[in-house]
Each structure stands twice: as C-alpha cells, then as structure tokens.
C-alpha cells in the first residue's frame, strides 16, 4: 500500500524535476535538477528491490558524471549574453520535429497495454548475489565485451586529451 503512494510521489517528483531541467534559465540549476531526477529514479530502483542498481546509479550518475557536468558548466560561466541566438526557421523546424516525435511516442505507447511479460518476474533479481550470478553466468560475453568497450573509450579519451603524439 505504502509502496504505491511512494511510487506516485517519486514519479511526480521525477517528472517535475525533469521538466525543471528543461525550463530552468540557469544551466547550473538545470544540472542540479537533473541530479534530483537521478535520485528519484534511484528511489524507483529501491522500490523494485534492486538496491545494487540504485546505489550504483547514485554513485556513477549523481556522484561522478553530474559532478563533472557541473564542473564544466561552472567554469564556462554561461550567461545570457554569450548564448547564441537561434534563427527563427531553426526554432520552427525544431518545434515541428519534436511534435512529430510526440505523435510517434503517443502512437507507440497506445499499443503498449497489450504486451504481457512472458517469463515470471523474480523480485530478488536486483539483489547483488543474484545479479552477479546472472551477469557472470548467463551474460558473461556481453559483460566482458562492454568492459572492453569502456576500455576503448578510455584510451580514446586519453589520446584526444594529449596535446601531441610523439
């Protein structure tokens, strides 16, 4: 019972914060609202009994990535004056494109009610023991491949960051 209310509260908060990310004039405020959005989504993970995912979500997104975002935005010191003004035809086309995207989303979500989950949901899948076993048994190859992907990205970032390659 209480989880239902929590779900609605968290969803409301998540949507409000996500809207505030878009509507805030100040980019630093946007980033801070995005951090709040991540926290509400972590709360949803806890409601789904996926504590590990919630903790990692907070550590990686709120604790690392958003701090770097904030870091860059604070140093760039974005003001009204430096913000480039878009041409009217660009604004017009952006409005049309996002309107079309809305139509597609509404159309796809309308048919979503008929989807029935094929296999039974295991409520303990999010606990760390089960998650580790699943990752290292059933999904070992994708797991390792994605770690290689991360390594490649890291090497690429270091190469791009270097001033000159000897």
């Amino acid at each position: 019972m209480i989880t239902t209310y929590l779900f609605y509260f968290l969803s409301f908060l998540a949507i409000m914060c996500a809207l505030m990310v878009v509507f805030s004039k100040n980019p630093v405020h946007s980033v801070l609202y995005l951090v709040l959005t991540f926290f509400t989504i972590a709360g949803h993970y806890v409601l789904l009994n996926a504590q590990f995912l919630a903790a990692v979500h907070v550590i990686v997104y709120a604790g690392a990535i958003m701090v770097l975002f904030l870091f860059v935005i604070m140093l760039m010191n974005l003001n009204k004056d430096t913000e480039p003004h878009k041409k009217p035809w660009l604004k017009f086309s952006a409005a049309i494109a996002s309107g079309l995207l809305l139509v597609v989303l509404v159309g796809s979500l309308k048919g979503a009610e008929t989807i029935v989950p094929t296999n039974a949901f295991n409520p303990n899948i999010g606990l760390i023991e089960n998650l580790g076993k699943t990752l290292f048994h059933d999904f070992l190859l994708p797991f390792e491949v994605s770690s290689i992907l991360l390594l490649v990205a890291m090497v690429g970032a270091v190469m791009l960051g270097k001033k000159s390659i000897k």
């Binding site: 504590q51 590990f52 903790a55 907070v58 550590i59 690392a64 701090v67």
Partner: peptide
C-alpha cells in the same frame, strides 16, 4: 544493515562534493 552497505557509504561520499561545489559557485 543494508546488504550493500559499502556502496551506500561510497554513494554518500560521492554526493558530499555537491555541498562544497554549490556553496563555492
């Protein structure tokens, strides 16, 4: 006694930066 206590501590430490960053900015 959360079963991910270490990650909880780590998460709290990682969001501890915000207080300093927000105040400084």
């Amino acid at each position: 006694d959360v079963n991910i206590g270490i990650l909880y501590i780590f998460g709290v430490v990682s969001i501890g930066i915000y207080g300093i960053m927000i105040g400084g900015w």
